[in-house]
């Protein structure tokens, strides 16, 4: 395995009294596609939200591309990271949310352009060109000046993907991106993710309930149960040939 792009080392997370993650060790290789599955409350979403710096680990470390994420080194000691450090490391990571979280006061094009211009200092013209390209890639090249409210859920989610991709992250996180969609709109979103996955150069971590989809695109499937990694391996190993009772009873709910 090549030098990993992200490493979780004994990561714990509690919300008040409740310990949601009870020691997570996980390595993600560059360009690896990892699917996180598990019952609700098992901590899958928390894992990727910590990588996006939306939740702070209670203990343990996360390293992204050789740099501590939530810590920084000072006189040989690890101290909690400040906002400046977070902003520097966070640049490698992008995320797509369950509820899209598009900016409603901006057109689709502006949604995509706001970050490259303000965060990376990309000239406006270039940012526009990159955004248009990306929106065309997700099949929305004809809606550039529409506002999010004028779009269907599936279209909104595709914009959200374009918006994240324009930043050229090394890792993309997908947080149940089809859960809030009407069933007939799920397909178009999965199709776009498949396209992105096929290009290959970016690592992807997907929290998902779409088992067929996970089998299709993931290099590795990780099953979380009660705050721990219970099983992991290739899709065949985890989804078809596991002997774990918990995993099989979880999977049986998705078989029709």
């Amino acid at each position: 395995m090549a030098k990993p792009i992200a490493v979780y080392n004994d990561v714990h997370k509690s919300f008040g009294e409740v310990e949601v993650l009870k020691g997570i060790d996980l390595e993600i290789a560059p360009a690896e596609k990892v699917a996180l599955i598990g019952p609700s409350g098992s901590g899958k979403t928390t894992i990727i939200r910590m990588l996006m710096t939306l939740e702070q680990p209670t203990s343990g470390t996360i390293v992204v591309d050789g740099q501590y994420l939530w810590h920084m080194e000072k006189n040989g000691e690890l101290v909690p990271a400040n906002e400046k450090h977070l902003r520097q490391v966070r640049g490698d990571i992008g995320m797509v949310f369950q509820h899209f979280n598009l900016f409603p006061h901006m057109s689709i094009l502006e949604n995509c352009m706001v970050a490259p211009i303000n965060v990376k200092g990309v000239p406006k013209k270039e940012a526009r060109q990159r955004s248009v390209e990306m929106l065309e890639k997700v099949g929305l090249g004809d809606k550039l000046d529409d506002y999010p409210s004028q779009l269907s859920g599936g279209q909104k989610q595709r914009v959200a993907m374009a918006r994240a991709l324009v930043m050229r992250p090394k890792i993309m996180l997908f947080d149940e991106v089809t859960s809030a969609l009407d069933p007939e709109l799920v397909g178009e979103v999965l199709e776009v993710i498949r396209d992105i996955a096929r290009e290959g150069e970016m690592a992807m971590v997907l929290v998902t309930h779409e088992m067929d989809f996970a089998r299709d695109i993931a290099d590795r499937v990780v099953f979380l149960d009660e705050g721990r990694i219970a099983e992991q391996g290739t899709p065949e190993q985890v989804l078809e040939n596991s002997e774990s009772e918990r995993l099989n009873s979880f999977l049986s709910r998705f078989r029709s």
Binding site: M52, R90, I93, G94, N101, A115, N118, V119, A164, M167
Partner: peptide
Amino acid sequence: EAATALNLSL
């Protein structure tokens, strides 16, 4: 959260 994910400054 979306603004954080896009790494916008405060």
